[in-house]
Design a protein around this nucleic acid. Structure first.
Lengths: 245, 245
DNA sequence: CAGGATTCTCAGGTTATTCACAGGTAGCCG
DNA sequence: CGGCTACCTGTGAATAACCTGAGAATCCTG
């Protein structure tokens, strides 16, 4: 089931119409807070836990529709927590947070089911998108909502990562894709450079704010080239996307 | 829920009909006073706090619907205060006040949820508009009031920053946009040049008072050009906007 | 480990916007 | 009708915001 949220975007709901419930498990409270803010803004109900034991307890009580789980916890390791989680809620999809250099095969083992993972440092756009994907596929969200975004003749498929305009396929890099997805999830709405930076770049990005301008420039070259422009600058305010013409 | 205030404008109320409660946190008392006056005029109930500790205490007691928070406080830094605020009231939207050159720095993550920020020196119009936006999207204000203002055939969309008259799109600069928004929020009401200056220009503006005349002139050229005029001069008193004819 | 793709910094270039200044115009009062 | 005042607006300079080319650094892939 889809509904229109206060901020005008569509959001996922549970089959009974209540909000989706998500549990965030991370011992770094700053990160947990950052995540819960972002997920609440998606319209989801969020609880946090700081260690494995608390995670298990909260799972039992809250019965979340999805779990975001840091694999490195102070009291027990990822596999153990996962095992106990599964004892409580066998079907719950899990999104793992892991360090970049974590051993590949162990992650592969963890994500054997329908689960997914993102590496730290991540961007909020990435986490939210993955979580939406998990919820969509798990059936916790009532309607099998489409994974395709469209604005005018511009089409973006979140599953296949394919983008096309007027039927013509366009190749984007990972960052370009995330930026475009963020714009397309908020069509006709001005997004400031700070908002974009906070959402599309990872939380530890310390660079120049003009990367946003740079990537907007890249996107225009690929998406607007020749055609009627869809990405617009609102000087002093930010950028927005809307159908050409 | 919307209601009509004594001064004839529409204002946001909480779901139970009581006034929206806002907490202003800033150690410069002159600024805090300026802000609270402006926000009270919007019909909101305002409390101020001069440092982080007081902010936390007041939050606990007042349970505000929104917080305006200076990121530079004498006793603790913005992120810390934010964390504690969130522990008290996880859902409360926050509008950050930050120095112009700090933007790149440590704003990272601040706008992650629905939050927003404005840079100092700001204009009151900007702060109020952002705060209204936050309240609108957070659902604290009962009515999901639209982000669109209309006076006659003149339409202004606060989300997309688009303005049109009789369906025809009009491009405005940032200052023109704020001036027009202020006029349109107060239709049929005379606004003096001093009021406009105080509201639309930032509080440290030191220039000639005739910028207002200049920008009114710009607006007329773009909005009234050819058509029946909507922006009227009341000699010796100020300006007002009302539907043409 | 080479080659290519990608991300990002830096800096110069371009355009839009803001604002001061000053001369012009129109309302108002006697 | 003359003069005073308030308001209007053309011109142009300074500035701010944005765009983009070139290339260094990094990551990824075979």
């Amino acid at each position: 089931m889809m509904a229109t949220s206060p901020h005008g975007r569509t959001e996922l709901l549970r089959p009974d119409g209540s909000p989706v419930r998500v549990l965030v498990v991370d011992d770094e409270s700053a990160l947990a807070d950052l995540l819960s803010m972002a997920l609440r803004y998606e319209g989801w109900e969020v609880r946090t836990a700081g260690d494995g034991a608390e995670a298990i307890r909260t799972t039992r009580e809250l019965r979340p529709d999805a779990v975001v789980l840091d694999v490195m916890l102070p009291d027990m390791d990822g596999l153990t927590v996962l095992g106990r989680l599964r004892r409580e809620l066998p079907e719950v999809p899990v999104l793992f947070l892991t360090a970049r250099d974590a051993v590949e095969d162990r992650i592969a083992g963890l994500t054997a089911g329908g689960d997914d993972y993102v590496t730290k440092p991540f961007s909020l756009e990435e986490v939210v998108a993955r979580l939406r994907g998990l919820l969509r596929r798990s059936g916790a969200a009532a309607a099998r909502s489409e994974s395709v975004l469209a604005v005018g003749d511009l089409v973006l498929d979140e599953d296949s990562h394919e983008v096309s305009r007027a039927g013509q396929e366009i190749h984007l890099t990972a960052t370009e894709f995330e930026l475009l997805r963020y714009l397309m999830r908020n069509p006709r709405r001005v997004l400031s450079k700070a908002q974009i930076l906070d959402r599309v770049w990872s939380y530890d990005f310390g660079g120049q704010a003009n990367v946003v301008e740079l990537y907007i420039s890249y996107l225009r070259r690929k998406i607007d080239a020749g055609r009627s422009p869809m990405i617009h600058t609102r000087r002093g305010a930010g950028y927005l996307i809307k159908p050409g013409e």
